[in-house]
Amino acid sequence: MSFPERLVLRCGPVNAVDLALFAAASGDHNPLHLDVETARRAGFDRPVVHGMLTMAYAARLFTQEFGAPRVRALQTRFVGIALLDDVIELKANLRHADCDGALYELEAATLMGTPLASGIARIAATA
Protein backbone atom coordinates (compact mmCIF):
# COMPACT_ATOMS: atom_id res chain seq x y z
CA MET A 1 0.00 0.00 0.00
CA SER A 2 1.59 3.25 -1.06
CA PHE A 3 0.50 6.74 -0.15
CA PRO A 4 1.87 9.79 -1.98
CA GLU A 5 3.80 12.19 0.24
CA ARG A 6 2.04 15.19 -1.23
CA LEU A 7 -1.27 15.92 -2.94
CA VAL A 8 -2.19 19.18 -4.68
CA LEU A 9 -5.37 20.41 -6.35
CA ARG A 10 -6.26 23.84 -7.72
CA CYS A 11 -9.94 24.85 -8.00
CA GLY A 12 -11.63 27.90 -9.46
CA PRO A 13 -11.61 30.80 -9.94
CA VAL A 14 -14.88 30.37 -8.06
CA ASN A 15 -17.51 32.20 -10.09
CA ALA A 16 -21.09 33.28 -9.37
CA VAL A 17 -22.50 30.19 -11.07
CA ASP A 18 -20.37 27.93 -8.85
CA LEU A 19 -21.72 29.69 -5.75
CA ALA A 20 -25.33 29.53 -6.97
CA LEU A 21 -25.00 25.85 -7.87
CA PHE A 22 -23.42 25.10 -4.52
CA ALA A 23 -26.17 27.00 -2.70
CA ALA A 24 -28.73 24.81 -4.46
CA ALA A 25 -26.77 21.59 -4.02
CA SER A 26 -25.93 22.16 -0.36
CA GLY A 27 -29.13 23.84 0.78
CA ASP A 28 -27.10 26.77 2.17
CA HIS A 29 -28.93 29.76 0.69
CA ASN A 30 -27.35 32.37 2.95
CA PRO A 31 -27.25 35.54 0.78
CA LEU A 32 -23.73 36.20 2.12
CA HIS A 33 -22.65 33.75 -0.60
CA LEU A 34 -24.81 35.15 -3.39
CA ASP A 35 -25.45 38.85 -2.94
CA VAL A 36 -22.82 41.60 -3.08
CA GLU A 37 -24.77 44.00 -0.85
CA THR A 38 -25.21 41.38 1.88
CA ALA A 39 -21.51 40.54 1.68
CA ARG A 40 -20.59 44.24 2.00
CA ARG A 41 -22.81 44.69 5.03
CA ALA A 42 -20.95 41.77 6.64
CA GLY A 43 -17.63 43.47 5.91
CA PHE A 44 -16.54 41.68 2.71
CA ASP A 45 -15.86 43.16 -0.76
CA ARG A 46 -17.47 40.32 -2.64
CA PRO A 47 -19.74 37.35 -1.91
CA VAL A 48 -18.14 34.82 0.42
CA VAL A 49 -17.31 31.32 -0.81
CA HIS A 50 -19.13 28.70 1.29
CA GLY A 51 -16.70 27.08 3.72
CA MET A 52 -18.34 23.81 2.71
CA LEU A 53 -17.37 24.41 -0.93
CA THR A 54 -13.73 24.79 0.11
CA MET A 55 -14.15 21.60 2.16
CA ALA A 56 -15.72 19.79 -0.81
CA TYR A 57 -12.67 20.78 -2.87
CA ALA A 58 -10.47 19.46 -0.05
CA ALA A 59 -12.40 16.18 -0.18
CA ARG A 60 -11.75 15.98 -3.94
CA LEU A 61 -8.03 16.14 -3.22
CA PHE A 62 -8.46 12.73 -1.57
CA THR A 63 -11.30 11.18 -3.56
CA GLN A 64 -9.49 11.72 -6.87
CA GLU A 65 -6.45 9.91 -5.49
CA PHE A 66 -8.04 7.16 -3.37
CA GLY A 67 -11.75 7.06 -4.31
CA ALA A 68 -14.62 8.16 -2.04
CA PRO A 69 -14.96 4.80 -0.18
CA ARG A 70 -11.49 5.09 1.37
CA VAL A 71 -12.00 8.58 2.85
CA ARG A 72 -12.98 7.82 6.47
CA ALA A 73 -12.53 11.14 8.21
CA LEU A 74 -12.21 14.74 7.15
CA GLN A 75 -11.87 17.68 9.53
CA THR A 76 -11.29 21.32 8.76
CA ARG A 77 -10.97 24.49 10.75
CA PHE A 78 -11.86 27.53 8.67
CA VAL A 79 -9.27 30.22 9.31
CA GLY A 80 -9.93 32.66 6.49
CA ILE A 81 -12.49 33.74 3.95
CA ALA A 82 -12.38 33.07 0.22
CA LEU A 83 -14.33 35.47 -1.97
CA LEU A 84 -15.96 35.28 -5.39
CA ASP A 85 -13.30 35.02 -8.17
CA ASP A 86 -10.64 33.56 -5.86
CA VAL A 87 -8.64 30.53 -6.98
CA ILE A 88 -8.41 27.98 -4.17
CA GLU A 89 -5.41 25.74 -3.77
CA LEU A 90 -5.58 22.56 -1.72
CA LYS A 91 -2.49 20.80 -0.46
CA ALA A 92 -2.02 17.76 1.71
CA ASN A 93 1.07 16.24 3.28
CA LEU A 94 1.34 12.65 4.48
CA ARG A 95 1.81 12.65 8.24
CA HIS A 96 1.55 8.95 9.03
CA ALA A 97 0.94 5.70 7.20
CA ASP A 98 0.65 2.10 8.37
CA CYS A 99 -1.10 -1.09 7.31
CA ASP A 100 -4.54 0.35 8.25
CA GLY A 101 -4.20 3.52 6.20
CA ALA A 102 -2.86 7.04 6.33
CA LEU A 103 -3.32 10.39 7.96
CA TYR A 104 -2.84 13.55 5.92
CA GLU A 105 -2.59 17.17 7.05
CA LEU A 106 -4.37 19.49 4.66
CA GLU A 107 -4.27 23.20 3.97
CA ALA A 108 -6.45 25.35 1.77
CA ALA A 109 -5.42 28.84 0.67
CA THR A 110 -6.21 31.30 -2.07
CA LEU A 111 -3.70 31.59 -4.85
CA MET A 112 -2.89 35.03 -3.39
CA GLY A 113 -1.79 33.25 -0.21
CA THR A 114 -4.70 33.89 2.16
CA PRO A 115 -5.02 30.82 4.40
CA LEU A 116 -8.58 29.43 4.29
CA ALA A 117 -8.63 26.15 6.15
CA SER A 118 -6.45 23.57 7.78
CA GLY A 119 -7.29 20.09 8.85
CA ILE A 120 -6.73 16.39 8.57
CA ALA A 121 -7.98 13.47 6.52
CA ARG A 122 -7.91 9.80 7.41
CA ILE A 123 -7.66 7.40 4.47
CA ALA A 124 -8.26 3.65 4.81
CA ALA A 125 -5.77 1.21 3.25
CA THR A 126 -8.57 -0.49 1.33
CA ALA A 127 -12.17 0.26 0.41
Binding site: G51, M52, A73, L74, Q75, R77, F78, I81
Partner: peptide, 8 residues
Protein backbone atom coordinates in the same frame (compact mmCIF):
# COMPACT_ATOMS: atom_id res chain seq x y z
CA UNK B 1 -19.53 32.12 9.84
CA UNK B 2 -18.64 28.45 9.67
CA UNK B 3 -15.73 27.86 12.05
CA UNK B 4 -15.13 24.11 11.97
CA UNK B 5 -16.51 21.00 10.36
CA UNK B 6 -15.61 17.36 10.94
CA UNK B 7 -16.91 14.14 9.42
CA UNK B 8 -16.30 10.61 10.65
Amino acid sequence: LHAEQAFD
